[in-house]
Amino acid sequence: MSIDPSSIPNFGGQPEPQPSGPDGPVVPDQDLVKQLLDQMELKYVVDEEGDLAAPWEQFRTYFMFRGEEEQQIFSVRTFYDRVHGIDEKSKLLEAIDDWNRRTLWPKAYTHTHDDGTVRLIGEASMLIGTGVSLEHFVSSTVSWVRASIEFDKWLVEQLGLEAEIEGKDEKPGDDEA
């Protein structure tokens, strides 16, 4: 099975072409996801656990298969690298509760580490064990990736982190005259 390149929705906002492929359901696998990522021109690596990961500057998105046969689940999980303090957790929860009410994916949640730092995770999943249409799989995966990127942008706006991000772009000593 292969993905027709014209079937990959673009990130530029033009109408999305419809994929062509098998008429019946397919059971997606890692090779199919690699094809999709290649055609989306996204770089990826395979981690030590065998999962695909696409790295961005502020986060990493994993494409994982879990479970056995008819119960197999495909999950797109994004780990956001921005570190938040435990004192910010209530503000974070308020923001991601708002996101989760307004959107279908990714569903976002916090993870508090032993050292008291808090990070965010976004996740969307699909039951694939009995097969899914290729069109549904491709459009869902692309939408989930797009939504993971949008969530990061949205969170920056909600929490007023623009100055923090712009500050990282400045080199030490730039403000000295």
Rank of each mutant, 00 (worst) to 15 (best):
R60W: 11
P22Y: 07
T112S: 05
D97Y: 12
L120C: 00
H84D: 04
Q58T: 10
K89S: 01
D98Q: 12
T103I: 03
E69F: 08
T112K: 06
T78Y: 00
I165A: 14
G122Y: 02
S7Y: 00
G116S: 00
D31M: 09
A177D: 02
W144L: 08
R60C: 10
S2A: 07
F74P: 04
L120A: 01
I165M: 13
Q39L: 15
I86H: 11
P22R: 12
S7Q: 08
G129A: 14
N100T: 07
T141G: 14
L42H: 12
G122A: 09
G13A: 09
F74K: 05
T130R: 15
V46W: 07
P28F: 00
L134Q: 15
M40V: 03
S148N: 06
Q71M: 14
L155M: 09
N100M: 03
G24P: 03
R101L: 11
S20I: 14
S133T: 15
K153C: 03
W99D: 04
D4A: 06
R82K: 14
L36K: 06
F63R: 11
F65E: 04
Q39Y: 09
Q14N: 10
I3N: 05
K34A: 10
E157D: 12
E157I: 04
S125E: 15
E135N: 13
R82C: 08
D23E: 15
E68F: 11
Q39N: 07
E48P: 00
P22S: 10
N100I: 02
S90Y: 02
Q158E: 11
K43R: 11
G173I: 04
E150W: 01
A147E: 09
A177T: 01
W105T: 11
P5T: 05
D47V: 00
K168H: 13
A53E: 02
E135W: 02
E88N: 08
L93M: 06
S140M: 15
S6T: 06
D169I: 08
G167N: 14
P19D: 04
E70N: 14
G173T: 04
S90D: 13
D115Q: 04
G173Q: 09
M126V: 07
D81G: 12
I86T: 08
E70D: 15
L92T: 01
F137A: 10
S125I: 12
G173P: 06
E48K: 11
H136F: 12
E176V: 11
A53D: 00
T78M: 05
L42D: 07
E123W: 00
G85F: 06
K89W: 01
L42Q: 13
V33M: 07
